[in-house]
């Protein structure tokens, strides 16, 4: 994983509540065996008409959304299926952070493991972000702050370990493998065997 620390971008706002991972990447695109190339199908059915043309009203298709790397989602973003293809697709498309008032557990876990920031903010901040699409926002992972440029600085909560891994670009598998001898002794000493 490459290190992630500072992000600065305009925002894209998708205010719908309960955006599930089926919306983010439909199951019919999951027959892939790699992580790459999913970005072209992110939010596919919201983005495209049946004939493959773009839906002009959908926010990602608007000219001002191009190149934006921060997505503001409605409450309970990323619920549903555990597919890691959802954060892969968002990253492949070019997003680096998702901000909402609530982010589903498995999605958030998956996102952070891939260097996609999944940030939960209070409802006032969230409302401000929803009301100001295209706002210029700076995120600092080490300081755990979001700066709403021209407005204010907000702190967000992030698990210390996830933060450390993001900043240093640490691969959690490497961390787990360092525990091998402890895992072995757990296996030997447990009172019953699966």
């Amino acid at each position: 994983m490459k290190p992630v620390n500072k992000i600065r971008s305009k925002t894209v706002v998708l205010p719908t509540r309960d955006i599930d991972t089926d919306q983010i990447i439909s199951a019919r695109f999951l027959t892939t065996t790699t992580r790459e190339g999913l970005g072209k199908n992110v939010f596919h059915d919201l983005r495209y008409n049946a004939d493959g043309s773009e839906k002009p009203d959908f926010v990602l298709n608007k000219p001002e959304s191009k190149g934006c790397r921060i997505l503001i989602g409605g409450n309970n973003f990323g619920c549903g299926s555990s597919r890691e293809h959802a954060p892969w697709a968002l990253l492949d498309y070019g997003f680096e952070a998702v901000i909402s008032t609530e982010i589903a557990d498995i999605f958030r876990n998956n996102a952070l493991k891939n260097g996609l920031l999944a940030i939960v903010v209070d409802s006032d901040t969230h409302q401000w972000l929803l009301d100001n699409p295209g706002a210029d926002v700076a995120i600092d992972v080490a300081a755990a702050t979001i700066t709403l440029l021209g407005a204010k600085i907000i702190e967000f909560a992030i698990d210390g370990f996830a933060q450390h891994c993001l900043i240093e670009g640490i691969d959690q598998l490497g961390f787990l493998r360092q525990q091998t001898s402890t895992i072995e002794s757990y296996e030997e000493n447990r009172s019953w065997k699966p």
Binding site: E84, N109, N110, K113
Partner: peptide, 10 residues
């Protein structure tokens, strides 16, 4: 509980 693919690897 359900896990993502990175965790499947773990």
């Amino acid at each position: 509980f359900g896990i993502g693919t990175t965790e499947v690897g773990h």
